[in-house]
Amino acid sequence: MIYDASSLDILYRGRLVELREMAESMKISKSGSVEVLRARLIHSIVLKDLDLSWDGIQGMSHNELGGILKIFGIKSSGSHRERRQRLWLHLNFDSRRMTIERLAEMDRDELHELCMRLEAPLTGNRTVLMGRVAGVLTNQLNGWGRIKRSLRRNGLKLSVSDPVTKAQENSEDDLEIANIDFDMDSPIAVIEDAHDSLILGIDTLGPDIQRDLRIISSYASEIDRIVGTILRGCGGIWGEGQRELMLRISKRRGWPVNDEAVRTRLARVSTDIAEIRGARIGEFGRMSSNSLLREQVISESSAQRIRQKMEFTDSLLREMGT
């Protein structure tokens, strides 16, 4: 497939503000998260001659779909149907917001439409349909909605003759994080996106939850600042502990975060901000092996880091409480 590699490279590397400026200059909608906007621009600039509607996707061959998925920078393997599902999801939804919580807010007609587009059986009540959509989303987990990390970091300028080892990748990640200034405020576009994410679709929620989320959304700039402070103190790592710390600080400041729906949204938005700021998502970075994880935890240096994090948490809570 022939495409403009230079434009694609720019889109892979682009940050939210840059992509929004590009979209505005081309009279393309600039709404949505950075990955939603990136997919829209790749479609409009790099693949502008392709019909990527649902009907168009249905008419594509197995190999064509694989090539297009690679251009979008997402998982390209799988069966013919899985590729169709993944491409349609990537073009039409934000993976951060297409959650089980969101499915629970949909009525039967919406779920029926999703089942049709995802080529799932259409019979059954609302609960059955929701289960089918959830099954597809689970099967496609991490396969769409976000370009691969290597593309976001290096674009298309990777040399196949110079393979990068896992250890080298981790060293590069550590260096990147060390060079990030977490004290800087995020661009206004990020703050606006966080505000919108907190109140997205709240009309379907109870009045008390709506009120609480509107209050929380008014603190979008403050949320960004707190996330930056936590990242600075935790070495650029953002995981379950950091999300919990965010919630504890919010509660200490008197924000209405007692309801689980409010806590879930705040945690999700905080994680989005952390990722945009350049955090390494996950308590132990890229550690995936249980044995490696145990070695990391039981080492004396790790124990010292944990003690330092606990001391930092206590001091941060005292600071936020003043």
Rank of each mutant, 00 (worst) to 15 (best):
D49C: 00
I68F: 13
S44V: 01
G32P: 15
I45E: 06
G73L: 12
I45S: 01
N63R: 11
F72V: 14
L41P: 04
G73K: 05
E64P: 00
G66E: 10
S61G: 15
I74H: 06
M60G: 03
E64Y: 02
E35A: 06
K48V: 03
I71R: 08
I57R: 10
I71A: 04
K70D: 12
H62M: 13
S53R: 05
G59E: 00
V46R: 02
K75V: 14
S44H: 00
G59H: 01
L52R: 02
I57S: 07
I71M: 05
D55C: 10
G56M: 14
L37S: 03
L65Q: 04
K48G: 01
L50M: 12
L69P: 05
W54I: 14
L41C: 04
S61T: 08
I57M: 14
Q58Y: 08
W54N: 05
E64R: 04
I42N: 06
I45Q: 06
I57Y: 08
L69D: 08
E35S: 09
K48W: 09
S44R: 08
G73I: 09
G59C: 03
E64K: 12
D55V: 07
V36M: 09
I71D: 10
I71V: 10
R38G: 02
R40C: 15
E35W: 07
D49G: 15
D55Q: 12
L50V: 00
S61C: 08
G66M: 08
H43W: 07
H62E: 04
V34H: 06
L37Y: 04
N63C: 10
N63D: 13
G32H: 14
I68K: 06
G73T: 13
K70S: 11
Q58P: 08
G73R: 04
L47A: 13
G59Y: 03
G66T: 09
L52E: 02
L50I: 08
A39S: 05
L50F: 07
F72G: 14
F72E: 10
G66W: 05
E64V: 10
G59N: 02
L52C: 10
G56C: 08
I74K: 11
K75H: 08
I45K: 02
